[in-house]
Structures are given as structure tokens and as C-alpha cells.
Nucleic acid binder design. Structure first.
Lengths: 223, 223
DNA sequence: CATCATCTTATGGTATACCATACTATGGAG
DNA sequence: CTCCATAGTATGGTATACCATAAGATGATG
């Protein structure tokens, strides 16, 4: 990691907020490698802010699970918790399942229209072939889903879980032959919601997570 | 809030860690009222540490959901999110349910013995009649349960959820006639786990949360 | 040549100083 | 008497200085 591509300039929001977002994006976008040390003073130079700001940002990222404090060595980019991936996928299946169910039960027509739009966007992202776009559109789709299901807390939790398996997720999406199944699964979720079938919606959502889980397992087994 | 009962002295861990724990306890123990402003400089005086420490602690507490930043006014003790209590109890029922199930399926005899011990402790706490003791023992019991179920992430999530309804929880425990039903429900969970009946364990755990939920609803309706 | 001790430096922890801004109180004008 | 303007103060945002400690390098001694 070098250069000053991270440098922020002060304008609207607080420096801290800007720095936080910049760092979060940088870590999630793999501009830092998992396990890479985040030495405070170099970070100050790269971001162009003082240590106070950097340290507060690191505390926040630590609480979010993106940064780990290594005793005696300070902060480092959190390494994905491979021993916990099963639990994480299990929880995602559970949570996305209940959200899809609630959505099928209570979403307004307008909300379903938003979901449709988000799905269209997701299909376009798959067509574009850029994994980062697919990931963003997927996130957006689920955000809309949880919003329509009125499960704000559950959404926060899922977001937190995804942070921990960010690397795995991007590998899953980039894996060969993921496109068609993923599109089919998402379409099933959408269809079940549209036709107001809660059981089917929950099942479809769980299946989708479980199929991603399967791929993640394979990825881990290989290397 | 006044006096210097919070003052920390530097010894083993970092000042920041100590201050963090002290503040977390103070908020969870209602030494600060929900909504109360947490002005930085007075906090420095009360804790006996510098603003750097206080600010980093506040960032961490903010990320944990115990502190909210009010735009233009700085930090304040987070007010319970009354509009989200239903969702929180729903999630707790879900998570504690799967933990109890997994525990019934996979816990070792030693782990079940630990659970038994934690339950005994909980019964003693109920006998003592001190709500704060009951809450601590309850937390300990569930921590043991999730540990035995090997659901570390789920436990972190439950802990985070409980932070948001801390106030409500303490009122629930302190409510009249809660003691006997609570003891009965916990005993059912324990019995189901001991006799390795996953379905019953999950059901019992859900019932326990739902009965607390019911009381919380009543509490909210009244006051 | 290996090993240990010591010195240097890198790093995080803590405190403080300074600045910009937003709230508040007070006084004057209408 | 009321309302607005202005000054003062409280508060958070940012930067920097200082200190303790732990890691790493270098040299001396066996």
C-alpha cells in the first residue's frame, strides 16, 4: 500500500467521518491486505489527517470488526474468521429468510416495485461482469428487502456479518458459473415475494444463502 | 450525575480500556440517564483522564450503540429504541432458540455441567432478589449456553441486542411475579438440553424470550 | 561463529493547546 | 414589552508534543 490515493480534503462533513468512510472503503475494497499492519503515523500521512483522527477512526473500525488490535503491535486489518464462516452463513440464512418472509407478508406495492428495480439493477451488474458492481447491487437489493420487511436491526446485523466474510463473498461472486444460479435464485425470491408467498420466499432466501455457502466452502477447501 | 465515583486509576491495562469498561458499566447500570448529555470535558474530570481517551472511548461506545451522537450537540447516552423492541425480541427468540438447539445436539457433558452450575447461580440470584444480580447471572447463563453451542458470533449479536433494551430488560426482571415463571422457563430449557431434545430446547428458549417480550410490551403500554 | 547485552528507533499511549462553531444571555431599539 | 443583534462562552474538532515501552539492530565477548 503506497501513494496518496487515500488523501482526503476537508469540506462538508467532519474530517473523522470522511476518514472513516475512506478507510472502510479501502479495507473492504482490498486496498489493504487482510492482516496488513495499520501503523498510525504512516496512515496520518496517507490520509492527510492527524493522529487523533486516525486513532478515533481505528477505534470505530475496530468496533465494526474491520480492524483488529494485535497486542503489542497495534492495529491491523482484520483477517477473515475462517473458523466462523459456517456460523456466519447460518445466521445470514436465518436472517435473510425471515426478512424475505416478512417482506412477502407486509410489503407495500411501492416497496415491491423498489425491489423489482433493485433486482433489475442487479441483473445489469451481473451483465457488466464486474464483481465489485455485483456486490454493490446485491447489497442494495438486500437493503431494499430488509427495509421493506421493516427489519432494520436485522439489516444492521447482516451488514456486520458481511463485513467479516467480505473477502469470501467477493470470491464467491467471482467464481465460475455463479452467475446463472445466482440470478435464478434471486428471481425465485422476488417471485415468491411478488406473489405473497411467505414460506416460499423464506425458503428461496435460505436456499440462496446456502448455495453461496456451498461455494464458499469449496473455495476454502481449495485454498 | 456528579461526584468522582467513576475515577479510574492507572495500573494494569490501558487507561482507555479501563475507561471504556467504567463507562459501559456506568451507562448499563443507569448511573447516567438515557438521553443525558455526555459532555467531554466534565467526563475527563470525572474519569480523571484526558480528552483523547474520552473521545476514543466515546467512539467505541457509539459503535456499540450505547452512545448516540446528536448532530451539533455531541454525545449523549443512547435512548432505547422503543420502535424496534419487537424486532429485537423476535431476533433474540430466533438466536437463543438456535443456540439452545445446537447445545442440546452437541454440548459435551462437561459443558452441560457448566450450564447447570450457571443455572444454580441464577436461581441463587433470584433468591437474593437483587435485579442487577439476576441480570448478571442470566447473562452468564446464556454466555455459557452460546459457548457450549459454539455460537460465538450469535452471542456477540445477542449481547449487542441486549444493550439496546437494557432498560426494558431490567424492568422486566423487576416486574411482579416474574420470578417463578422465569425460573420455570429456564429450567425447561435446561431439562431439554440435558435430555438432548433439540426441538424442545429450541421451543423452550423461544418461549422464554416470548414471555419476557410479553412483559416488556405490558411495561411499555403502561409507562 | 554464536549468543547475549545494550542501544537505537519505531510505535502506541497520553496530555494539552488551539481553533471553529453553535448556543445563550444580555442589552438596545422599535 | 418584545424582538433582534451582538458578544461571550461552552463545546466539539483538530493538531501536536511528550513519554513509556517494545521490537530490532549492532557490537562485543565467550
Amino acid at each position: 500500500m503506497s501513494g496518496d490515493t487515500l488523501r482526503i480534503d476537508r469540506s462538508a462533513k467532519t474530517l473523522r467521518t470522511l476518514a472513516l468512510e475512506r478507510m472502510r472503503e479501502a479495507i473492504m475494497g482490498f486496498h489493504f491486505q487482510p492482516g496488513e499492519r495499520l501503523v498510525e503515523r504512516p496512515l496520518c500521512d496517507q490520509l492527510g489527517v492527524s493522529r487523533s483522527v486516525v486513532r478515533e477512526v481505528l477505534r470505530q473500525l475496530e468496533a465494526e470488526g474491520l480492524v483488529q488490535m494485535i497486542p503489542g503491535h497495534g492495529p491491523a486489518v482484520a483477517k477473515p474468521d475462517l473458523g466462523r464462516t459456517d456460523e456466519i452463513y447460518e445466521l445470514r440464512a436465518l436472517l435473510e429468510g425471515i426478512a424475505a418472509r416478512a417482506c412477502a407478508l407486509t410489503a407495500t406495492d411501492a416497496q415491491i416495485a423498489s425491489l423489482d428495480a433493485a433486482l433489475t439493477n442487479l441483473l445489469e451488474a451481473w451483465a457488466s461482469g464486474a464483481p465489485v458492481e455485483v456486490m454493490r447491487a446485491t447489497t442494495k437489493f438486500y437493503e431494499t428487502l430488509f427495509e421493506a420487511a421493516d427489519k432494520r436491526i436485522a439489516w444492521e446485523i447482516v451488514t456486520g456479518l458481511n463485513v467479516r466474510i467480505n473477502q469470501l463473498r467477493s470470491m464467491t461472486i467471482a467464481s465460475e458459473n455463479r452467475r446463472e444460479p445466482a440470478i435464478a435464485e434471486m428471481t425465485e425470491i422476488m417471485d415468491a415475494i411478488r406473489s405473497r408467498k411467505p414460506d416460499e420466499a423464506e425458503e428461496a432466501a435460505r436456499r440462496h444463502v446456502e448455495s453461496a455457502w456451498q461455494i464458499a466452502r469449496n473455495t476454502l477447501r481449495l485454498g
